[in-house]
Protein backbone atom coordinates (compact mmCIF):
# COMPACT_ATOMS: atom_id res chain seq x y z
CA UNK A 1 0.00 0.00 0.00
CA UNK A 2 2.65 2.53 1.08
CA UNK A 3 4.97 1.27 -1.64
CA UNK A 4 2.27 1.82 -4.25
CA UNK A 5 1.71 5.40 -3.14
CA UNK A 6 5.43 6.01 -3.05
CA UNK A 7 5.59 4.81 -6.65
CA UNK A 8 2.73 7.12 -7.59
CA UNK A 9 4.05 10.25 -5.87
CA UNK A 10 7.80 9.95 -5.24
CA UNK A 11 9.09 7.61 -7.98
CA UNK A 12 12.05 9.84 -8.86
CA UNK A 13 13.57 12.96 -7.27
CA UNK A 14 11.88 15.02 -10.00
CA UNK A 15 8.53 13.38 -9.20
CA UNK A 16 9.04 14.15 -5.53
CA UNK A 17 9.74 17.80 -6.32
CA UNK A 18 6.66 18.01 -8.55
CA UNK A 19 4.51 16.43 -5.85
CA UNK A 20 5.73 18.89 -3.24
CA UNK A 21 5.13 21.90 -5.50
CA UNK A 22 1.63 20.61 -6.30
CA UNK A 23 0.86 20.08 -2.62
CA UNK A 24 1.98 23.63 -1.87
CA UNK A 25 -0.23 25.06 -4.64
CA UNK A 26 -3.22 23.00 -3.51
CA UNK A 27 -2.65 24.20 0.07
CA UNK A 28 -2.43 27.85 -0.97
CA UNK A 29 -5.64 27.63 -2.99
CA UNK A 30 -7.81 25.38 -0.84
CA UNK A 31 -7.21 26.97 2.59
CA UNK A 32 -8.55 30.44 1.68
CA UNK A 33 -11.29 28.78 -0.35
CA UNK A 34 -12.50 26.63 2.54
CA UNK A 35 -12.33 29.67 4.84
CA UNK A 36 -14.40 31.76 2.46
CA UNK A 37 -16.89 29.04 1.58
CA UNK A 38 -17.44 27.50 5.04
CA UNK A 39 -15.41 28.60 8.05
CA UNK A 40 -15.73 32.40 7.80
CA UNK A 41 -19.09 32.36 6.02
CA UNK A 42 -22.30 33.75 7.49
CA UNK A 43 -25.26 31.36 7.40
CA UNK A 44 -27.91 32.91 9.62
CA UNK A 45 -29.63 36.24 9.35
CA UNK A 46 -32.09 38.12 7.19
CA UNK A 47 -30.23 41.03 5.60
CA UNK A 48 -26.90 42.16 4.27
CA UNK A 49 -26.00 43.73 7.63
CA UNK A 50 -25.89 40.30 9.24
CA UNK A 51 -22.88 39.40 7.09
CA UNK A 52 -19.95 40.74 9.10
CA UNK A 53 -17.45 37.93 8.57
CA UNK A 54 -14.74 37.87 5.92
CA UNK A 55 -16.31 34.84 4.26
CA UNK A 56 -19.25 34.28 1.97
CA UNK A 57 -22.67 35.69 2.80
CA UNK A 58 -24.93 32.66 2.33
CA UNK A 59 -27.77 34.64 3.91
CA UNK A 60 -28.15 36.20 0.47
CA UNK A 61 -28.70 32.81 -1.18
CA UNK A 62 -31.07 31.70 1.59
CA UNK A 63 -33.21 34.82 1.33
CA UNK A 64 -33.35 34.57 -2.46
CA UNK A 65 -33.59 30.80 -2.67
CA UNK A 66 -37.19 30.92 -3.96
CA UNK A 67 -36.17 33.17 -6.84
CA UNK A 68 -33.20 30.98 -7.74
CA UNK A 69 -35.60 28.03 -8.01
CA UNK A 70 -38.81 29.57 -9.42
CA UNK A 71 -37.96 33.05 -10.74
CA UNK A 72 -40.94 35.41 -10.44
CA UNK A 73 -43.46 32.53 -10.33
CA UNK A 74 -46.18 33.66 -7.82
CA UNK A 75 -45.57 32.32 -4.31
CA UNK A 76 -49.08 30.90 -3.94
CA UNK A 77 -48.82 28.93 -7.20
CA UNK A 78 -45.38 27.37 -6.71
CA UNK A 79 -46.90 24.05 -5.67
CA UNK A 80 -47.79 23.58 -9.34
CA UNK A 81 -44.12 23.65 -10.30
CA UNK A 82 -43.35 21.12 -7.57
CA UNK A 83 -46.21 18.93 -8.77
CA UNK A 84 -44.99 18.95 -12.38
CA UNK A 85 -41.46 18.15 -11.18
CA UNK A 86 -42.78 15.29 -9.06
CA UNK A 87 -44.78 13.92 -12.03
CA UNK A 88 -41.66 13.89 -14.21
CA UNK A 89 -39.61 12.17 -11.53
CA UNK A 90 -42.39 9.63 -10.97
CA UNK A 91 -42.64 8.93 -14.70
CA UNK A 92 -38.88 8.46 -14.96
CA UNK A 93 -38.82 6.07 -12.01
CA UNK A 94 -41.78 4.02 -13.27
CA UNK A 95 -40.46 3.83 -16.84
CA UNK A 96 -36.99 2.73 -15.77
CA UNK A 97 -38.44 -0.14 -13.71
CA UNK A 98 -37.51 -3.27 -15.63
CA UNK A 99 -40.50 -5.37 -14.60
CA UNK A 100 -43.07 -2.83 -15.80
CA UNK A 101 -46.08 -4.56 -17.41
CA UNK A 102 -47.26 -3.26 -20.83
CA UNK A 103 -44.05 -1.29 -21.03
CA UNK A 104 -44.35 0.15 -24.54
CA UNK A 105 -48.00 1.11 -24.10
CA UNK A 106 -47.25 2.89 -20.80
CA UNK A 107 -44.26 4.68 -22.36
CA UNK A 108 -46.34 5.84 -25.29
CA UNK A 109 -49.17 7.03 -23.03
CA UNK A 110 -46.73 8.95 -20.81
CA UNK A 111 -45.06 10.54 -23.82
CA UNK A 112 -48.44 11.71 -25.15
CA UNK A 113 -49.99 12.86 -21.87
CA UNK A 114 -47.20 14.20 -19.67
CA UNK A 115 -45.60 16.98 -21.77
CA UNK A 116 -48.86 18.84 -22.54
CA UNK A 117 -50.10 18.23 -18.99
CA UNK A 118 -46.91 19.82 -17.64
CA UNK A 119 -47.40 22.94 -19.77
CA UNK A 120 -51.08 23.24 -18.81
CA UNK A 121 -50.28 22.92 -15.10
CA UNK A 122 -47.45 25.45 -15.27
CA UNK A 123 -49.31 27.97 -17.39
CA UNK A 124 -52.82 27.57 -15.96
CA UNK A 125 -55.94 28.97 -17.62
CA UNK A 126 -57.40 27.13 -20.68
CA UNK A 127 -60.46 26.15 -18.66
CA UNK A 128 -58.59 24.40 -15.84
CA UNK A 129 -59.60 26.87 -13.15
CA UNK A 130 -55.94 27.47 -12.33
CA UNK A 131 -54.69 31.05 -12.24
CA UNK A 132 -52.77 32.00 -15.40
CA UNK A 133 -49.02 32.41 -14.88
CA UNK A 134 -47.50 34.06 -17.95
CA UNK A 135 -44.22 32.58 -19.18
CA UNK A 136 -42.45 35.86 -18.48
CA UNK A 137 -42.91 35.14 -14.76
CA UNK A 138 -41.21 31.74 -15.04
CA UNK A 139 -37.55 31.67 -14.12
CA UNK A 140 -34.68 30.18 -12.21
CA UNK A 141 -33.79 26.51 -12.10
CA UNK A 142 -37.36 25.57 -13.01
CA UNK A 143 -37.03 27.41 -16.32
CA UNK A 144 -33.62 25.87 -17.00
CA UNK A 145 -35.09 22.38 -16.52
CA UNK A 146 -38.18 23.28 -18.58
CA UNK A 147 -36.03 24.45 -21.51
CA UNK A 148 -33.82 21.35 -21.30
CA UNK A 149 -36.67 18.85 -21.10
CA UNK A 150 -38.93 20.36 -23.77
CA UNK A 151 -36.15 21.20 -26.22
CA UNK A 152 -34.86 17.65 -25.65
CA UNK A 153 -38.33 16.19 -26.28
CA UNK A 154 -38.32 17.80 -29.73
CA UNK A 155 -34.62 17.29 -30.44
CA UNK A 156 -34.36 13.54 -29.78
CA UNK A 157 -37.07 12.29 -32.20
CA UNK A 158 -36.14 14.93 -34.78
CA UNK A 159 -32.47 13.98 -34.46
CA UNK A 160 -33.26 10.29 -34.95
CA UNK A 161 -35.32 11.07 -38.07
CA UNK A 162 -32.53 13.26 -39.45
CA UNK A 163 -29.93 10.57 -38.79
CA UNK A 164 -32.06 8.01 -40.63
CA UNK A 165 -32.62 10.54 -43.42
CA UNK A 166 -28.90 11.13 -43.78
CA UNK A 167 -28.37 7.41 -44.35
CA UNK A 168 -31.42 6.98 -46.56
CA UNK A 169 -31.31 5.33 -49.98
CA UNK A 170 -33.29 8.23 -51.44
CA UNK A 171 -30.99 11.05 -52.64
CA UNK A 172 -33.50 13.82 -52.05
CA UNK A 173 -34.22 12.82 -48.44
CA UNK A 174 -30.49 12.52 -47.88
CA UNK A 175 -29.91 15.99 -49.32
CA UNK A 176 -32.59 17.62 -47.16
CA UNK A 177 -31.22 15.97 -44.01
CA UNK A 178 -27.61 16.91 -44.74
CA UNK A 179 -28.49 20.56 -45.43
CA UNK A 180 -30.60 20.77 -42.25
CA UNK A 181 -27.93 19.18 -40.07
CA UNK A 182 -24.98 21.13 -41.46
CA UNK A 183 -26.85 24.43 -41.41
CA UNK A 184 -27.75 24.30 -37.72
CA UNK A 185 -24.37 22.89 -36.74
CA UNK A 186 -22.57 25.63 -38.62
CA UNK A 187 -24.00 28.65 -36.81
CA UNK A 188 -23.57 29.75 -33.17
CA UNK A 189 -26.50 28.93 -30.87
CA UNK A 190 -26.73 32.54 -29.80
CA UNK A 191 -27.58 33.58 -33.37
CA UNK A 192 -30.20 30.83 -33.55
CA UNK A 193 -31.89 32.10 -30.41
CA UNK A 194 -31.89 35.61 -31.89
CA UNK A 195 -33.19 34.20 -35.15
CA UNK A 196 -35.98 32.28 -33.47
CA UNK A 197 -37.09 35.23 -31.39
CA UNK A 198 -37.09 37.60 -34.39
CA UNK A 199 -38.26 35.39 -37.26
CA UNK A 200 -40.84 33.06 -35.69
CA UNK A 201 -43.35 35.86 -35.03
CA UNK A 202 -42.77 37.02 -38.61
CA UNK A 203 -43.50 33.75 -40.40
CA UNK A 204 -46.75 32.79 -38.69
CA UNK A 205 -50.04 34.18 -40.07
CA UNK A 206 -50.89 37.73 -38.99
CA UNK A 207 -52.81 37.77 -35.72
CA UNK A 208 -51.08 34.72 -34.30
CA UNK A 209 -48.24 35.02 -31.84
CA UNK A 210 -45.56 32.56 -30.80
CA UNK A 211 -44.81 32.70 -27.08
CA UNK A 212 -41.39 34.12 -26.25
CA UNK A 213 -40.39 31.01 -24.34
CA UNK A 214 -41.67 28.71 -27.10
CA UNK A 215 -39.41 30.56 -29.57
CA UNK A 216 -36.39 29.85 -27.39
CA UNK A 217 -37.39 26.18 -27.02
CA UNK A 218 -37.78 25.77 -30.80
CA UNK A 219 -34.47 27.50 -31.54
CA UNK A 220 -32.58 25.36 -29.02
CA UNK A 221 -34.35 22.20 -30.18
CA UNK A 222 -33.36 22.65 -33.85
CA UNK A 223 -29.68 23.11 -33.06
CA UNK A 224 -29.55 20.23 -30.59
CA UNK A 225 -31.48 18.01 -33.04
CA UNK A 226 -28.73 18.57 -35.61
CA UNK A 227 -26.03 17.59 -33.10
CA UNK A 228 -28.20 14.71 -31.82
CA UNK A 229 -28.50 13.45 -35.42
CA UNK A 230 -24.73 13.19 -35.67
CA UNK A 231 -24.59 11.30 -32.37
CA UNK A 232 -27.24 8.84 -33.60
CA UNK A 233 -25.48 8.50 -36.95
CA UNK A 234 -22.42 7.31 -35.07
CA UNK A 235 -24.54 4.54 -33.54
CA UNK A 236 -26.08 3.62 -36.90
CA UNK A 237 -22.66 3.39 -38.52
CA UNK A 238 -21.36 1.13 -35.77
CA UNK A 239 -24.11 -1.41 -36.47
CA UNK A 240 -23.12 -4.22 -38.86
CA UNK A 241 -24.90 -4.06 -42.23
CA UNK A 242 -25.94 -7.71 -41.75
CA UNK A 243 -28.54 -6.75 -39.15
CA UNK A 244 -30.78 -4.83 -41.53
CA UNK A 245 -30.02 -7.22 -44.41
CA UNK A 246 -31.19 -10.16 -42.30
CA UNK A 247 -34.35 -8.26 -41.37
CA UNK A 248 -34.95 -7.49 -45.03
CA UNK A 249 -34.56 -11.15 -45.87
CA UNK A 250 -37.31 -11.87 -43.33
CA UNK A 251 -39.54 -9.57 -45.37
CA UNK A 252 -39.81 -6.66 -42.94
CA UNK A 253 -40.46 -3.18 -44.34
CA UNK A 254 -38.21 -0.13 -43.86
CA UNK A 255 -39.92 1.37 -40.80
CA UNK A 256 -40.30 -1.97 -39.04
CA UNK A 257 -36.62 -2.74 -39.62
CA UNK A 258 -35.62 0.61 -38.16
CA UNK A 259 -38.02 0.34 -35.21
CA UNK A 260 -37.45 -3.29 -34.26
CA UNK A 261 -33.90 -4.11 -35.37
CA UNK A 262 -31.74 -1.10 -36.12
CA UNK A 263 -32.72 1.67 -33.69
CA UNK A 264 -32.82 -0.36 -30.44
CA UNK A 265 -29.23 -1.43 -31.06
CA UNK A 266 -27.95 1.82 -32.59
CA UNK A 267 -29.42 4.01 -29.83
CA UNK A 268 -27.78 1.87 -27.19
CA UNK A 269 -24.40 2.43 -28.88
CA UNK A 270 -25.13 6.13 -29.37
CA UNK A 271 -26.32 6.74 -25.80
CA UNK A 272 -23.03 8.14 -24.42
CA UNK A 273 -22.76 10.58 -27.34
CA UNK A 274 -26.44 11.51 -26.94
CA UNK A 275 -25.93 12.13 -23.23
CA UNK A 276 -23.08 14.48 -24.12
CA UNK A 277 -25.43 16.42 -26.40
CA UNK A 278 -27.97 16.53 -23.59
CA UNK A 279 -25.35 18.00 -21.25
CA UNK A 280 -24.49 20.53 -23.95
CA UNK A 281 -28.19 21.41 -24.22
CA UNK A 282 -28.44 21.90 -20.46
CA UNK A 283 -25.42 24.22 -20.55
CA UNK A 284 -26.65 26.10 -23.60
CA UNK A 285 -30.04 26.94 -22.10
CA UNK A 286 -28.15 29.74 -20.32
CA UNK A 287 -28.08 31.61 -23.64
CA UNK A 288 -31.75 32.58 -23.34
CA UNK A 289 -30.39 35.37 -21.14
CA UNK A 290 -29.71 37.16 -24.46
CA UNK A 291 -33.44 37.51 -25.15
CA UNK A 292 -34.20 38.50 -21.52
CA UNK A 293 -35.53 35.17 -20.32
CA UNK A 294 -34.22 34.60 -16.81
CA UNK A 295 -33.09 31.03 -16.24
CA UNK A 296 -30.94 30.03 -13.25
CA UNK A 297 -27.88 31.97 -14.48
CA UNK A 298 -30.08 34.89 -15.53
CA UNK A 299 -31.64 35.08 -12.05
CA UNK A 300 -28.17 35.03 -10.49
CA UNK A 301 -27.13 37.81 -12.87
CA UNK A 302 -30.27 39.84 -12.14
CA UNK A 303 -29.74 39.44 -8.39
CA UNK A 304 -26.49 41.41 -8.71
CA UNK A 305 -28.51 44.51 -9.55
CA UNK A 306 -30.49 44.39 -6.27
CA UNK A 307 -29.52 47.48 -4.23
CA UNK A 308 -30.26 45.62 -0.97
CA UNK A 309 -27.57 43.06 -1.77
CA UNK A 310 -24.69 44.95 -3.35
CA UNK A 311 -21.45 43.05 -3.88
CA UNK A 312 -22.87 39.52 -3.72
CA UNK A 313 -21.40 38.62 -7.15
CA UNK A 314 -19.28 35.74 -5.91
CA UNK A 315 -22.02 34.18 -3.78
CA UNK A 316 -24.53 34.29 -6.65
CA UNK A 317 -22.07 32.83 -9.15
CA UNK A 318 -20.77 30.12 -6.83
CA UNK A 319 -24.29 28.96 -6.00
CA UNK A 320 -25.52 28.90 -9.62
CA UNK A 321 -22.25 27.42 -10.90
CA UNK A 322 -22.38 24.61 -8.31
CA UNK A 323 -25.86 23.57 -9.46
CA UNK A 324 -24.80 23.48 -13.12
CA UNK A 325 -21.67 21.53 -12.22
CA UNK A 326 -23.46 18.88 -10.16
CA UNK A 327 -26.13 18.26 -12.79
CA UNK A 328 -23.65 18.01 -15.70
CA UNK A 329 -21.12 15.97 -13.75
CA UNK A 330 -23.87 13.65 -12.47
CA UNK A 331 -25.19 13.08 -16.00
CA UNK A 332 -21.75 12.31 -17.42
CA UNK A 333 -20.91 9.94 -14.55
CA UNK A 334 -24.24 8.14 -15.03
CA UNK A 335 -23.48 7.74 -18.72
CA UNK A 336 -19.98 6.37 -17.99
CA UNK A 337 -21.33 3.91 -15.45
CA UNK A 338 -23.94 2.64 -17.91
CA UNK A 339 -21.35 2.28 -20.64
CA UNK A 340 -19.16 0.20 -18.34
CA UNK A 341 -22.07 -2.01 -17.31
CA UNK A 342 -22.99 -2.60 -20.96
CA UNK A 343 -19.40 -3.53 -21.77
CA UNK A 344 -19.45 -6.07 -18.96
CA UNK A 345 -22.77 -7.43 -20.21
CA UNK A 346 -21.29 -7.91 -23.67
CA UNK A 347 -18.33 -9.72 -22.19
CA UNK A 348 -15.78 -7.33 -23.65
Amino acid sequence: MIAAWRQRLFATPLDAAITLVCLYVVWRISVPLVHWLLLDATWNGTSRDDCKGAGACWVFVRMRFGQFMYGQYPLAERWRVDLVGALWVLATVVLSWRGLPYRSAVTLATAIVLPPLGIVLLHGGWGTGLAVVETREWGGLMLTLFLTVYAGLIAVPLGILLALGRRSRLPLIRFISVVFIEFWRGVPIITVIFLASLLLPLIVPTGFDVDRLARAVIGLAFVIAAYMAEAVRGGLQALPEGQSEAAQALGLGYWRIQRMIVLPQALRIALPAMTNEFIALFKNTTLVLIVSIFDLLGIAQAALADPAWVGMNMEAYVFAGAIYWFVCFGLSQWSRLREKRLQVAHGR
Binding site: A11, T19, C22, V26, Y317, Y324, W325, F329
Partner: peptide, 27 residues
Protein backbone atom coordinates in the same frame (compact mmCIF):
# COMPACT_ATOMS: atom_id res chain seq x y z
CA UNK B 1 2.93 9.09 -13.93
CA UNK B 2 2.67 11.38 -10.91
CA UNK B 3 -0.72 10.64 -9.37
CA UNK B 4 -1.21 14.08 -7.82
CA UNK B 5 -0.36 15.93 -11.04
CA UNK B 6 -2.66 13.79 -13.14
CA UNK B 7 -5.50 14.11 -10.59
CA UNK B 8 -5.17 17.90 -10.54
CA UNK B 9 -5.30 17.97 -14.34
CA UNK B 10 -8.39 15.76 -14.12
CA UNK B 11 -10.00 18.21 -11.68
CA UNK B 12 -9.38 21.07 -14.08
CA UNK B 13 -10.91 19.16 -17.00
CA UNK B 14 -14.00 18.07 -15.06
CA UNK B 15 -14.40 21.55 -13.63
CA UNK B 16 -14.46 23.52 -16.89
CA UNK B 17 -16.32 20.94 -18.98
CA UNK B 18 -19.31 20.72 -16.66
CA UNK B 19 -20.14 24.41 -16.33
CA UNK B 20 -21.75 26.57 -19.06
CA UNK B 21 -19.41 28.85 -21.01
CA UNK B 22 -21.75 31.78 -20.46
CA UNK B 23 -21.22 31.29 -16.73
CA UNK B 24 -17.45 31.70 -17.17
CA UNK B 25 -17.87 34.75 -19.41
CA UNK B 26 -20.10 36.49 -16.86
CA UNK B 27 -17.94 35.30 -13.97
Amino acid sequence: RNWLLSTLAGFYIEFVRNIPLLFFVLF
